[in-house]
Design a protein around this nucleic acid. Sequence first.
DNA 1: TGACAAAACGGAACAACGTCCCGTATCTTC
DNA 2: GAAGATACGGGACGTTGTTCCGTTTTGTCA
Lengths: 190, 190
Amino acid sequence: MADGVTRPKRADAQRNQKALLDAAAAVFVEAGVEAPVRDVAARAGVGTATIYRHFPTRADLIVAVYRHQVDALAEAGPALLAAGGSPYTALSSWIDQFVGFLVTKHGLAHVLQSSDACFDPLHDYFIERLVPVCGELLEAAAEAGEICPGQEAYEFMRGVGSICAGAGGARHYDARHLVTLLVAGLRRAG
Amino acid sequence: MADGVTRPKRADAQRNQKALLDAAAAVFVEAGVEAPVRDVAARAGVGTATIYRHFPTRADLIVAVYRHQVDALAEAGPALLAAGGSPYTALSSWIDQFVGFLVTKHGLAHVLQSSDACFDPLHDYFIERLVPVCGELLEAAAEAGEICPGQEAYEFMRGVGSICAGAGGARHYDARHLVTLLVAGLRRAG
DNA sequence: TGACAAAACGGAACAACGTCCCGTATCTTC
DNA sequence: GAAGATACGGGACGTTGTTCCGTTTTGTCA
């Protein structure tokens, strides 16, 4: 709160923060989100301590890199519902978008479901932004009688995330297909 | 082959191997299968190199600890099919047993789906023993018209494993329930 | 029984990584 | 342009996986 009154960051700090974000985005693509901190720092041309100053935990850095995309996903949910198709179709499409997001970010799904406290900020951000949206979609589909009611949104999202995490470089493994099974299962099992 | 002609291991080697298995089983319960190698060695009262001599990779140790239980699971599949219930019920029960096995072994599901080459022996052992069994169950259920045909056993097992891996200490996450959804999805989606 | 060679052992050593500390450099403000 | 606050850089420390090498234990054969 009261963003305006806080003194602006020093120019070099702003520069380094941007350099770190760019470097992290590039390194994450090449080596996954679990790439060594030193690599990100080196690519940004800063010392290792600087990365900790700007992003106390790795999770903070990951959140900063992907915040826009997560927000876009969060906004896509209500849009799909409002688009007029059936709620189940909207749910299905949204989950598919979520899967598409996760499987293209090497290692992201993996750390997302990690129980390591160091990733809590990441976990919390995803929960805060996406679980409510998923909850709306599930509820709408349940009210329309398209799926069995009572499915917890958090649990479901985590299940989808887990299935995506299993995709890490495996052949003969189609996360999209398995998630389709999971979504289809909502129609039948309670 | 020709087990009889290979010279038996030295007495101290046999002793240490047993001590390591016992120690590993205990440490895995307390700290998960990713517990530090030093901890297992210390609990067994041996040096760190000894553990590598007996079990070149961590996966070899894990396989040795859980081999009996995996074998029992593999044998349970045909038994369930022969028991007379519907193939879908047999499949469902068997998968439930698999889930029960995984969720009680901290971290096992997690390393099972790891892409780290160090876990390949573990991965391979599970595939070799369980995928064929799952394939039989899937095929039987498909032939009985209870599920859509064409589901790859490996992919399905891996999906179940991934869902279990997501359970690592999370509250509000019921791996069994999600797997039930996945199994139910087999009936509907292709 | 005693000695010798093979087998196995133990702990130190090395490398990779996450994290933190402290002396130094840079920036803002006046 | 000087002073104080802010931020920086790279080295230091702790943890873990893995390997090397001098030492000990074991099995065997005289």
